[in-house]
Design a protein around this nucleic acid. Structure first.
Lengths: 122, 122
DNA sequence: TTTATACTTTACCTAACGAGAATATATAGT
DNA sequence: ACTATATATTCTCGTTAGGTAAAGTATAAA
C-alpha cells in the first residue's frame, strides 16, 4: 500500500524529541523578559562602557573628567552616559555647568562582579 | 603684562578636576579585564541567546530540538552554540549523529538571575 | 556504497551601533 | 550683551555581527 504523505510530514524540521521540546517551551523565558534581559547585557557588552562604570564605582565624576580618564572625546562619553541613563545604570545631578554622574544603584556592581567571577573561573 | 600662552594651555581638553582623574585612573579596570568582561556581557546581550540559555537551565537538549523550540533555523542555532561554546557558557557531548548541549556551569545562571533582579527592580 | 539525517562551517547580506565632527544649548563670568 | 566653558544632540561613517542560504562533514541505516 502506498504511503500517504500529509502536509505535516512535509515540514523540513524533523521533530526528534517532542517531549523535550514541550518541556522546553514551558520553561523558556518569554519574549519580553528575554528582550529586556538581553538589553542590559548588551549595554554592558562594550569595553568603554564597562570602563566608564568601573570609574563610577569609586567616585562621582563629571563628564569632562571621564573623557579625560578614558582618553575619549567628550561627545562619545556623553553618548554613552545617555545610554546608561536610559537603562537606569547611572544617574546625575547638575551643578552649574557641570553634570556629576554616579551609579544608579548597586545592582550594577553586583552584575559586574558576577561577570568577573566567570572571567576568573576561565 | 601680556599673558604668555604655553603649549599645555593649548590643550583642547580642560582638566577640570585633576585629583579626581588621578583617582579614577588608579581604580579603573585595565584594558584586558574590561575587554573580557564586556565580551561575556555582549554574548548575553542577544535575546535569542538568552532564550537558548534559559532552555538549557532546565534540560539537556539537542540542536534540532532547540531550533524547533526557538522557531529558528538549525544553522542559526549552530552558530549561536559555537559562540556560547567558545565563551565556555555551554558544553556538549556527541551521541551518534546528535549533539546534546548543557550549560557549562552555574555561573551563567547566577549572571542571568542577577540581571533579572535589575530588570525587576526597574 | 548509497541515502538520509544531524550538525557544522563558509560566504554573504543587511541592520545596528560606537565614535568623531560639527552644531546646539545652557550656564557663568565679565 | 558678549565670551568661554560644560554638556548634549544631530549627522555621518565604518565596522561588527546575527541570520540565511548553501556547501561540507560525520554518522547510521538500508
Amino acid at each position: 500500500m502506498k504511503k500517504i504523505i500529509k502536509d505535516e510530514d512535509m515540514c523540513e524540521v524533523h521533530v526528534t524529541h517532542p517531549e523535550n521540546i514541550q518541556q522546553a517551551l514551558c520553561h523558556q523565558l518569554d519574549d519580553e523578559k528575554s528582550q529586556k534581559l538581553a538589553e542590559i547585557f548588551k549595554i554592558l557588552g562594550v569595553p568603554s562602557r564597562i570602563k566608564l562604570l568601573s570609574l563610577l564605582i569609586n567616585e562621582e565624576m563629571c563628564v569632562c573628567d571621564i573623557a579625560e580618564a578614558l582618553n575619549m572625546e567628550q561627545s562619545a562619553i556623553s553618548h554613552q552616559l545617555r545610554v546608561l541613563r536610559d537603562a537606569h545604570l547611572v544617574k546625575f545631578r547638575k551643578e552649574g555647568k557641570e553634570a556629576w554622574y554616579t551609579l544608579d544603584d548597586d545592582h550594577v556592581v553586583k552584575l559586574m562582579n558576577q561577570g568577573m567571577e566567570h572571567i576568573m573561573h576561565l
